[in-house]
């Protein structure tokens, strides 16, 4: 017997179902009971019950693409903070091959990189790599942080949400599965994207979000355009006075 409904908010320890059901992500089995392990939304698919968390830390998985920050340059590798309880290492051999070169010249402390998680071992030691399209160091732009569980919502179905943001603002946007987002475009557009991303994060569990974001974009850009026009007008006036 299922005791909750799809999209109900549940809390840890809450019994979701009793009997022959599968315990999906965010749940656990206690005898014949399926219980929630998290604060989150119930997702029922046939006889599998899961709970989608409202907040969580990023736990690295092999194959993920992540955005990370160099925190230390060592003898033959870089330590990288990937916004997770587990920091990663980027081996020098991955960048230079067999060649010996100055590590600091390649990447220094504070640099932001787009990387792939190459391997995660049993105790969550994380190896990162740069082989792949678009991977490497970011130059310019800004960073926005969101809860990693909200990443799918930001990307949208087949990239619908993220593409809409890119189209409207003409910004480059790169999303790491660890909840870090890199945005580059005109500075005022970067801030618009930041605002929109924060709104998506805050309202990720509500419906009709895509439409509201489109409206928000139009509104924000409308204002931007109006301001730009006004500035131009003022410039024009100044020129006249001179």
């Amino acid at each position: 017997m299922i005791l909750v409904e799809d999209k109900d908010i549940v809390v840890p320890g809450e019994v979701l179902a009793e009997g022959e059901y599968y315990a999906g992500r965010g749940t656990f089995k206690d005898d014949s009971k399926v219980c929630s392990a998290l604060v989150g939304l119930v997702a029922i698919r046939d006889d599998k019950i899961s709970v989608l968390p409202l907040q969580s830390k990023y736990i690295p998985k092999r194959g993920d693409v992540v955005i990370g920050k160099i925190t230390e340059v060592r003898f033959s590798m870089w330590n990288v903070d990937i916004n997770s309880p587990y920091s990663g290492i980027l081996p020098a051999s991955d960048v230079f091959g067999r060649e010996k070169r100055d590590m600091n010249k390649a990447f220094a402390v504070g640099d932001i990189l787009f990387m792939r998680v190459v391997d995660v071992d049993e105790v969550k030691k994380v190896k990162l790599g740069l082989k792949g399209r678009g991977l490497g160091k970011f130059r310019g732009g800004i960073l926005v942080e969101i809860t990693p569980t909200k990443v799918p919502r930001l990307i949208g179905k087949k990239g619908s949400m993220i593409n809409m943001i890119k189209d409207h603002t003409k910004c480059e946007v790169v999303v790491g599965q660890n909840g870090l987002v890199w945005v580059k475009g005109k500075p005022e557009m970067e801030r618009v994207v930041e605002k929109v991303i924060k709104t998506i994060e805050a309202e990720a569990h509500t419906s009709g979000l895509t439409d509201r974001v489109r409206e928000m974009l139009n509104q924000l850009l409308g204002i931007e355009e109006a301001e730009a026009e006004k500035e131009e007008e003022e410039d024009f006036k100044e020129e006249l006075i001179q």
Binding site: G13, C35, A37, L38, V39, T149
Partner: peptide, 11 residues
Amino acid sequence: LADAGIPMRDM
């Protein structure tokens, strides 16, 4: 703890 998204058996 629950608010931080930490998985728990019970509160």
